[in-house]
Design a protein around this nucleic acid. Structure first.
Length: 482
RNA sequence: CGGGGAGUGGCGCAGCCUGGUCAGCGCGCUUGCCUUGGGAGCAAGAGGUCGACGGUUCAAAUCCGUCCUCCCCGACCA
């Protein structure tokens, strides 16, 4: 019993923050690098990111976008062209000032986002309305000099995908912004099994340089919100700054209408915080690095009596397109393996022992419910595939009911504070639309407006602003956020 | 950037107050035997200039000073 404690992680309910850090290291998703705020994404964690990339890239391409790659460095003069953009990012830009032993004539920013290096290129490439829409995405690394960092959630360098598009009209740009938002939502819900709220950001929360920012927000199991992705309508802010013009269908010179949008390695952190439990991770099958682990029960002459059957089962599952691992390590006992793979979030475990071989069957155990069942060897691929679907659905359903149970209404500021104190989660309440009131609430409670639902563009009558008591113009979702 | 905590074999820690067999424990690791249906057991091993630099002293993991790094909690952000 005492020895067990050694490998054990802090229970989630006892100290969520500590649980998060420990599980990330023990499950080998990531490790701290020797530089502040930087981490190494280890193979197991990177496999999750690769699965995310795969599923997202598919959708990005299916909506007509193509991938390209732009430089890591941005000349300072470029970065400064869009005033609000520079202003917003200047505190967190890393600079390159020398090459070898020679100082540079102009400093180079390590991209905190790529608008400022993509803009000038688009200006070169776009001449006519026939060049539009231009729909490019890039997978890249980004550097933002953050003061407070946490593995996956906020690191100095992170990986992401950033889409940058140009359109003929304001309407098309807005459509693109919303199309991507919907695509993101479908992706997060389907692949990551995470339900989200989507909507507009307030002016204070929008991307520096954007005209309008839309976002997805998810609820972590400690009751704090996490932004899962953003889609920005840039209007003509950047096209004017970078002189991206085209001749339209009536032979008139116009600035293009742009969008940009991104999702990051933060999503890996979201998977951990939404689905994890006291025993460790619980990965949704569609992004799990290993979907099913086969544990041969090592007794007696298991290497000759059990192992071949385990290997054959692994081959059969692999042939059925399932990501499977046959854990034939001799140095670990079956019990050890059970606990380890549970901690690492493998959705299904398939146990095969001497008795099973005799009976021509295997024991399948679900990570999410720990339910056990038996399946004949021949039926294994079909049964495992269908159980993976069930686990995926159940994880979503569980997260969805948690989200639903943690969206509350506040009719007064007092009520708002009580909910925050007692339950956290999302709180819907009246807002007059003024930034000052947004600040008042934030300063008093640390909660911010996460999103303003899209179905709510018209003023809502009857409600009052939580901060000033005047008539509310909308009822956004508030929350404390990461 | 403010407040707090911590740097001792791979990991987790004890030792520090009261300098001197204090280089120690557990886990892990290596080798062998034996085991294996929920984190096995025994035996023998390998492994550390005690975060860095400077100072006090006959003597520093221990006392003093400076610096570095990491973590947590806050203000800013994917």
């Amino acid at each position: 019993m005492n020895e067990r404690q050694v490998k054990h992680i802090t229970p989630k309910s006892e100290d969520f923050s500590r649980w998060y850090q420990e599980i990330i290291q023990k499950a080998e998703l990531a490790d701290y690098a020797p530089m502040k705020g930087m981490m190494v994404i280890r193979p197991y964690g990177f496999a999750v990111w690769e699965n995310i990339q795969h599923h997202l890239d598919r959708r990005i391409k299916a909506t007509g976008h193509v991938n390209a790659y732009f430089p890591l460095f941005i000349p300072e003069s470029f970065l400064q062209k869009e005033a609000e953009h520079v202003e917003g990012f200047s505190p967190e830009v890393a600079w390159v000032t020398a090459g070898g032993k020679e100082d540079l004539e102009e400093r180079l920013a390590v991209r905190p986002t790529s608008e400022a290096i993509i803009g000038p290129m688009y200006a070169k490439w776009i001449r006519s309305w026939r060049d539009l829409p231009l729909l490019i995405n890039q997978w890249a690394n980004i550097v933002r000099w953050e003061k407070v960092t946490r593995p996956f959630l906020r690191t100095t360098e992170f990986l992401w995908q950033e889409g940058h598009t140009c359109h003929e009209t304001a309407e098309e740009a807005e459509e693109e912004t919303l199309r991507v938002l919907a695509m993101y939502r479908e992706f997060v819900e389907t692949e990551l099994a995470i339900p989200v709220l989507s909507g507009r950001k307030t002016l204070r929360e929008k991307f520096a340089g954007a005209q309008m920012t839309y976002a997805l927000e998810a609820l972590m199991s400690d009751g704090k919100a996490l932004q899962m992705g953003t889609s920005h309508n840039l209007g003509q802010h950047f096209s004017k700054a970078f002189d991206i013009k085209f001749e339209d269908r009536r032979q008139k010179l116009q600035y293009v209408w742009q969008t940009s949008w991104g999702m990051t390695t933060r999503l890996v952190g979201a998977l951990v915080m939404v689905h994890g439990d006291d025993a460790g991770l619980r990965f949704p099958p569609r992004v799990a690095p290993v979907q099913a682990v086969i544990v041969p029960i090592s007794v007696g002459d298991w290497k000759t009596s059990v192992l071949p059957a385990a290997r054959a089962a692994a081959d059969a599952l692999r042939a059925a397109g399932i990501r499977v691992l046959c854990d034939a390590r001799e140095e670990a006992t079956p019990g050890w393996k059970f606990a380890e793979h549970e901690m690492r979030g493998v959705p299904l475990r398939v146990e095969i022992g001497p008795r099973d071989v005799q009976a021509g069957q295997a024991v399948i155990v679900r990570r999410d419910t720990r339910a056990k069942e038996k399946a004949a060897f021949e039926a294994l691929p079909v049964r495992v595939a269908s159980l993976l679907d069930e686990v995926q659905k159940r994880l979503y359903a569980e997260a969805d009911s948690f989200l639903a149970a943690n969206i509350r209404e506040a009719r007064s500021f007092e009520e708002f504070r009580e909910i925050l104190e007692k339950d956290r989660g999302f709180i819907r309440g009246g807002w007059c639309g003024e930034g000052a009131c947004e600040d008042t609430i934030k300063n008093a409670t640390m909660a911010t407006i996460r999103v303003i639902p899209l179905d709510e563009t018209e003023p809502v009558s009857g409600g009052l602003c939580l901060a000033c008591g005047r008539e509310a113009k909308g009822r956004p979702y508030f929350a404390r956020a990461y």
